[in-house]
């Protein structure tokens, strides 16, 4: 058998990789030592004290010190594991502010990736090497999850909210992403874009991550605008569309974009900042907060303003919401 088949982890290609693999193998070897210690002891005892004619078992005694020791000793290891795991998790959930945003939309059973210039790709995504990339993800139907084993990242994609995932690739080349949250299958095989007929479902919702050198990134972005598949009919980026919606939907009657408060808070410099709320709590203005503020305006009202905004639930599409959020994000 190929020895590579016995490796516990695949090749790692992101900045999370080295730390992740170190912690994984630490737990792995710690488990091996504990397993051999415990089971080795048990097997030794089974052989040594196997039933022999005329030899009786000795009565069981007590050993409070030993009992306390094996109750308390694991705590040290557990605290260490918790700490390291938590530190790793914090970095997994804290994208740098300058991360490149790619908007990811999942549906049964395909992925759509929208780049900052408005271009799209389906079931394959291209990212630049050595640059933080953030996926802002939503689902159009059921739960999905974005899983890129080589980057050691995974995040559920949930309808009705945005979830985010970030990484910084350290290696140019191709690696695979998968859907990791069960999302069903078509009853019968489905005709694919390439004309073949295949079973389609959760298991087929995977594709390639192409990691290109920095020099290849700008040409790639240009190429997707020229691609024949770029037929979404929108000649501008999401943020540009959001700017148009800002006046078309009359957002501008209550919200300024130059920092001056009107009936509602200004959009300038809001995104990514901590906002004080009327109920005394605080919230970070991220995609989910902005989305909620449009759909349920009175749920989290900014301090100093009155809850007078009408709900846009049902009157804005998900794409329009995305565009408005992209615009507000641009104004930060």
């Amino acid at each position: 058998m190929n020895t590579d088949l016995m490796k516990q982890l695949p090749a790692q290609w992101s900045t999370f990789g080295p730390g992740y693999d170190w912690l994984f193998y630490f737990i792995y070897w710690m488990s091996v030592v504990l397993f051999v210690g415990i089971i080795g002891t048990a097997m030794y005892l089974v052989v040594k004290y196997r039933r022999k004619p005329g030899v009786k078992a000795e009565p069981t005694g007590h050993n409070l010190v030993m009992e306390l020791a094996w109750t308390v000793a694991p705590v040290v290891l557990l605290v260490l594991l918790f700490h390291w795991g938590f530190v790793g998790y914090v970095s997994l959930t804290s994208p740098p502010p300058d991360a490149l945003d790619i908007r990811v939309r999942a549906r049964k059973w395909s992925w759509d990736f929208e780049y900052p210039n408005g271009g799209h790709s389906q079931n394959a995504v291209t990212v630049p090497i050595n640059r933080p990339v953030r996926f802002v993800m939503s689902s159009e139907d059921v739960l999905h999850a974005m899983f890129i084993p080589a980057f050691r990242v995974k995040r559920d994609v949930v309808p009705g909210m945005y979830s985010t995932l970030w990484f910084q690739a350290t290696h140019a080349g191709d690696t695979r992403f998968f859907c990791a949250e069960y999302c069903g299958a078509a009853d019968l095989p489905v005709m694919q874009p390439d004309g073949s007929v295949r079973d389609t479902g959760h298991f087929s919702m995977n594709g390639m991550v192409h990691i290109v050198p920095q020099s290849g990134w700008a040409p790639y972005l240009e190429s997707i605008l020229r691609a024949p598949s770029h037929d979404n009919g929108i000649e501008f980026t999401a943020a540009e569309w959001g700017e148009q919606l800002y006046t078309q939907q009359n957002c501008n009657t209550c919200h300024s974009v130059n920092g001056s408060p009107m009936t509602g808070p200004t959009w300038q410099g809001v995104f990514g900042h901590v906002v004080p709320l009327a109920d005394g709590t605080q919230v970070t203005a991220d995609e989910n907060y902005i989305r909620r503020s449009i759909l349920e305006p009175n749920a989290q009202v900014v301090r100093g303003f009155n809850p007078v905004m009408p709900s846009y639930q049902g009157s804005l599409t998900d794409r329009q919401l995305d565009a408005l959020i992209a615009y507000i994000r641009m104004l930060r």
């Binding site: 999370f16 730390g19 992740y20 912690l23 994984f24 737990i27 594991l81 918790f82 390291w84 795991g85 938590f86 530190v87 790793g88 998790y89 970095s91 997994l92 999850a145 899983f147 084993p149 050691r152 990242v153 995974k154 990791a180 949250e181 069960y182």
Partner: peptide, 11 residues
């Protein structure tokens, strides 16, 4: 149970 390690292994 270890948070960051679970992320890769989950599901």
């Amino acid at each position: 149970g270890t948070l960051s390690v679970d992320i890769h292994l989950h599901d």
